[in-house]
């Protein structure tokens, strides 16, 4: 191997170096621009953002926003996704059940659920139940559809084995269909969780509220840019953490899949 190519080949073995270098240089350019005062006043540099975030954490304001937001997102997710998984699996194994839901689901699924929020808020007010209801409805669909397709896609041979062995319908559902559709169900849960977080921010941006989304909007209106960036950072961290936790749990649950993994980004 020639000398000229050697460093590149080494880099190729360890692409994370490039990843970090790229991210770091982006941050550096951003910081430099901010320090030189070349950027508009509402674009803070990374260092200022971190400082503002720590300031917010220190004063306890950030936590006061994170807690109600997370409560809404997670309870909406728990309600919507669990109903979705149960109904989806049932629809997957029962044809009449599936047919009964089919058209209703096809017509309601494409509605952007956030569009329901103003109408729901008229009845329930801009309250937690209204927000949780919207988040739950939005989280329901990906969970339902993926559990349904998971159950439909179960290798029929596995079910035949259960019938051959003389296992009851309930046992086949619990010990064959449920685990066999788990990979797909987990994919649905991850989408549901992402949707829940989008709906969390969306429902908080609108109307009078506490929480992260409302905090962002208030900070924007009052030109409190440090606060605004701290809020954005908090939303990002919540989203990444929740996804990482769910990913970790699903890896544990699906460890039997072998080297292939779930194969899903």
């Amino acid at each position: 191997m020639s000398d000229g190519r050697a460093p590149l080949a080494t880099l190729r073995e360890a692409p994370w170096i490039v990843s970090i270098a790229f991210a770091a240089s982006l941050l550096a350019i951003w910081q430099l621009g901010a320090a030189m005062g070349r950027l508009p006043e509402y674009i803070l540099g990374p260092a200022d953002i971190v400082a503002a975030t720590f300031d917010q954490i220190h004063r306890g304001e950030l936590l006061d926003r994170v807690i109600p937001s997370l409560r809404r997102a997670l309870s909406g997710f728990a309600i919507g996704a669990s109903i979705g998984v149960v109904l989806g699996l049932l629809a997957g194994v029962s044809r009449p059940f599936r047919e009964l839901f089919d058209l209703t689901q096809a017509f309601t699924h494409p509605i952007p659920k956030i569009a329901l929020f103003p109408a729901v808020a008229i009845v329930l007010g801009f309250t937690d139940p209204a927000r949780i209801l919207i988040i739950a409805i939005a989280a329901f669909f990906p969970a339902y559809l993926n559990a349904l397709n998971g159950a439909l896609g179960v290798n029929p041979g596995l079910v035949w084995v259960g019938r051959n062995i003389g296992a009851s319908r309930v046992r086949i559902f619990l010990q064959v269909v449920l685990p066999a559709s788990l990979p797909r169900t987990v994919v649905g849960l991850r989408i549901s969780l992402m949707v829940s977080f989008i709906m969390m921010v969306a429902t908080e941006l609108v109307g009078h509220s506490d929480g992260l989304g409302a905090g962002l909007m208030d900070a924007y209106l009052e030109a409190e840019y440090g606060e605004m960036y701290a809020g954005i950072l908090a939303v990002a961290v919540c989203g990444v953490l929740a996804n990482a936790i769910l990913l970790l749990v699903s890896r544990r649950l699906l460890s039997w899949q072998g080297a292939g993994g779930t194969g899903h980004d």
């Binding site: 290798n155 596995l158 035949w160 084995v161 051959n164 064959v176 685990p179 066999a180 899949q257």
Partner: peptide, 29 residues
């Protein structure tokens, strides 16, 4: 009239439960 344990079926592709170990698969019946 239906499937029964007196007639054991071995399918074309091994229909083992991928979430169970070999032992646990064999122990299931």
């Amino acid at each position: 009239m239906g499937p029964g344990r007196d007639r054991g079926m071995v399918f074309q592709e091994a229909t083992l439960f991928p979430w169970r170990t070999t032992r646990s698969n064999v122990a299931w019946p």
